[in-house]
Computed example of a mutant assay.
Amino acid sequence: MIIAVDFDGTIVEHAYPKIGKPIPFAVETLRMLHNDGHRLLLWTVREGKLLEDAIDYCEQNGIYFFAANANFPEENRENSPRKLMADLFIDDRNLGGLPDWGVIYKAVEATVRGENSFETIMSNTPIPEKKERKGFRGLFR
């Protein structure tokens, strides 16, 4: 599978533009996915030096991406589509948030077997309680 992975809030905690603390089991799981033969793409808002910092962090932790913010390493971002051609996106902004990395790994395995990975994720992820929203936006939720 081709798997696009976000950086901030997914591999490390949010501390942008700094590198946050590692999210438990993210590095280990991504190494396992790579070793299982999946192609990993880094898909992040980071560009320039901040992107280099993220790539360096990952490489220092044994995570190697096929490409960053692109489908292929040599892709010209000015002439290519903004959307990645990935089978799966791992991002903390997913519907329901970022599942535990163990659940993510099981969902990828289920997808490879042809099972419904969304059911796998949802059956293993507790549904968070609704937070009371205040302010203007809270009127519409």
Rank of each mutant, 00 (worst) to 15 (best):
G96A: 02
A54D: 05
T44I: 03
E52I: 12
R46W: 01
E115A: 03
E109A: 09
G135M: 05
V27M: 09
F89K: 13
F118T: 06
V112H: 01
N35S: 14
D100K: 13
G102I: 14
L51G: 07
P17Q: 03
N116W: 01
M122P: 15
N69S: 05
I127C: 11
D53N: 13
E115F: 12
I127K: 07
Y57S: 04
H34L: 14
V45F: 07
F72Q: 12
N69D: 06
K106H: 09
T29C: 09
I55V: 11
E74L: 13
I104T: 01
E115C: 03
K18Y: 14
R31V: 00
D53V: 12
T111W: 12
C58Y: 05
T120I: 14
A54E: 00
G96C: 01
L98Q: 01
E59D: 04
N71T: 02
L33P: 06
M32C: 09
F25N: 12
M32D: 15
H38I: 02
K131S: 10
T111E: 10
T29V: 09
A86R: 02
A68N: 04
P81R: 07
K134N: 07
F65W: 00
S123A: 03
G96Y: 02
G135R: 06
L50N: 12
E109D: 13
A110T: 03
F25P: 08
V112Q: 10
P128L: 01
M32R: 13
P73R: 03
C58Q: 03
E59W: 10
G62S: 04
K106G: 12
L30C: 05
G37M: 05
T29Y: 03
L51V: 08
I55W: 13
S80R: 01
E59S: 08
E47V: 09
L84D: 05
V27L: 11
E119Y: 06
I90N: 08
L30G: 02
N94Y: 09
E109V: 13
M32A: 15
Y64T: 15
L40E: 02
I90K: 04
L40P: 07
A110L: 05
L40R: 00
L50E: 13
G37S: 05
L98G: 06
A86K: 01
E47M: 09
